[in-house]
Every structure is written in structure tokens, then in C-alpha cells.
């Protein structure tokens, strides 16, 4: 694997009021790598992933994607929040898939996918539609182009959301617990789309409890607890010989 770093987080701290949810998180993710972040609720994993595309501000530390500082710029040695225009531009490189899908309910599946390429990248409509059709077919929804989200199942909605993020051709995909709002019988269809994506070389950071997915697709698993990373290694490491007591406890609950 070429060791080109796509995402680098260095000593990220984040507080909500007086509650410190991230207490110095550092992580590098290289091109083509798939990293799963696991951990109990309240461990800061969702907050961390939301910091990567600046949905949350950070209090100290730095996050870079493709070598660009995210959400901030350096001014006299201090970090100040970047302009909205620059943050928006950086986000086009970072795809985000949400736990609750957040599809646009007033737009069809196809319209959801072409919205940002048309309005943000300025692509022409024919091109955007062609690409969206390919993407929706790839996630198995080639027959649902004109269907509104309200008429799709949770699993189908999440696959549209993945296609919508991919339409921007991001360098990095973030998944925030993409299957935890789904019925158990449809998580599989979403996970297999994600596995395929990982095998095709997409760089992905996935907050998940699906150890099956981790085993199948992840290059690395990161365990967070109490706002820090307490253990990381290959999926096999976590299945066979987790070292940290907290990790053992956590895995025994979810496996």
C-alpha cells in the first residue's frame, strides 16, 4: 500500500460545554485504507468523525485531509476558523454518510444524487444524471431513480445516501454508524455496498459496531473509550487477542 496520508488528525481536543469528549485523538489514514472506529456510546467516536468534515469545531489540535487543514487557517501562529466558502470547498472532498440517512425528502433518489454535482460542482445536467444512474445501479437501486425517500426502505435510503456522497467523487468517505438505524435484515445490503467500496480502494473511516464488516473490509480497527484511542490493530488482533481490558469487555458485549 502506498503510504500517502489522506487524513491526519493530531491531538484533537473537543469540549461540549464543560464535558471534554475528545481528549487528544491522533490518527493517520492512508489512501485506500478502511479504518473502523469502535467503542461504547459516549466514547467520542461520532464526535471525532464529525470533526473530520468540520460539522463540529475542535478546541485544539489539527485535522488535515489531503494535506489541507480542515475548518481552520493559520493566522499569526494561531488557528482561526476558515471562511464558509473554503470550508464548503473542502467538504466536497469528504463524503459523509449519516446514521439517519438525511436524504432530502422533497427530492427523488436521482435528484438527491445529482443535487450537489449540479449546484456545487456546476456539472451539466446530462452528465450528472448519467453518473447518478451508474452510481444508483452500483448500489442496487437502478430501478428506484424516480422514487421519493419516503417510499424507500431504510436500507434503500442509506444506499441512496452512499450514492449521493460518492457523486462528489470524494477522496475520503466518512460513515457515522451507517447501519445502526436499520432493521437487522437490511443491514446486510448496506454493508455489502460498503465492503465493495472498500475493496475498490475507497479510503473510508467507519464508525460501526459491525465486527463482521470490520473483519471483511477493514484494514485497521481503532477502539475509542473516554475520548481517547485505547487500542488499535488489525481486525484479527481484535478477534484473537485484544490487549486492553476495556476492549475485551466491550467486544464480549457486541460479538
Amino acid at each position: 500500500m502506498t503510504a500517502e496520508v489522506v487524513m491526519r488528525a493530531a491531538d484533537v481536543h473537543k469540549k461540549f460545554g464543560r464535558l471534554e469528549v475528545l481528549k487528544g485523538v491522533s490518527m493517520d489514514v492512508s489512501t485506500g485504507e478502511t479504518v473502523c472506529i469502535i467503542g461504547p456510546s459516549g466514547s467520542g467516536k461520532t464526535t471525532f468523525i464529525r470533526c473530520i468534515n468540520h460539522l463540529e469545531k475542535i478546541d485544539s489540535g489539527r485535522i488535515e485531509v489531503n494535506g489541507h487543514l480542515i475548518g481552520y487557517r493559520q493566522s499569526n501562529g494561531k488557528l482561526v476558523e476558515d471562511s464558509e466558502r473554503n470550508i464548503a470547498r473542502q467538504r466536497t472532498q469528504i463524503g459523509m454518510v449519516f446514521q439517519r440517512f438525511n436524504l432530502f425528502p422533497h427530492k427523488t433518489a436521482l435528484e438527491n444524487v445529482i443535487e450537489a454535482p449540479l449546484k456545487v460542482l456546476g456539472h451539466d445536467k446530462a452528465h450528472a444524471v448519467d453518473k447518478a444512474k451508474v452510481l444508483l445501479s452500483r448500489v442496487g437501486l437502478g430501478d428506484k431513480l424516480d422514487t421519493y425517500p419516503g417510499k424507500l426502505s431504510g436500507g434503500q435510503q442509506q444506499r441512496v445516501a452512499i450514492a449521493r456522497a460518492l457523486a462528489m467523487e470524494p477522496a475520503l468517505m466518512l460513515f457515522d454508524e451507517p447501519t445502526s438505524a436499520l432493521d437487522p435484515e437490511v443491514t446486510g445490503e448496506v454493508l455489502s455496498v460498503m465492503e465493495e467500496l472498500a475493496h475498490q480502494g475507497m479510503t473510508m473511516i467507519v464508525v460501526t459496531h459491525e465486527m463482521g464488516f470490520a473483519k471483511e473490509a477493514a484494514d485497521r480497527v481503532v477502539m475509542m473509550d473516554g475520548g481517547v484511542i485505547i487500542e488499535e490493530g488489525t481486525p484479527e488482533h481484535f478477534f484473537v487477542a485484544p490487549t486492553h481490558e476495556r476492549t475485551k469487555q466491550f467486544l464480549s458485549k457486541i460479538l
Binding site: 464558509e84 464548503a88 456545487v120 462528489m168
Partner: peptide
Amino acid sequence: DKGQMEAATSLGMRRGL
């Protein structure tokens, strides 16, 4: 839902758009 604004801005849309 706040998630609508988050999803839109995550796609690179500015707040006004």
C-alpha cells in the same frame, strides 16, 4: 431536521444555497 442542513453542507453546499 438539523440533519438536512448537515447533509447539504457536507456535500459542499454553502448555508445560503
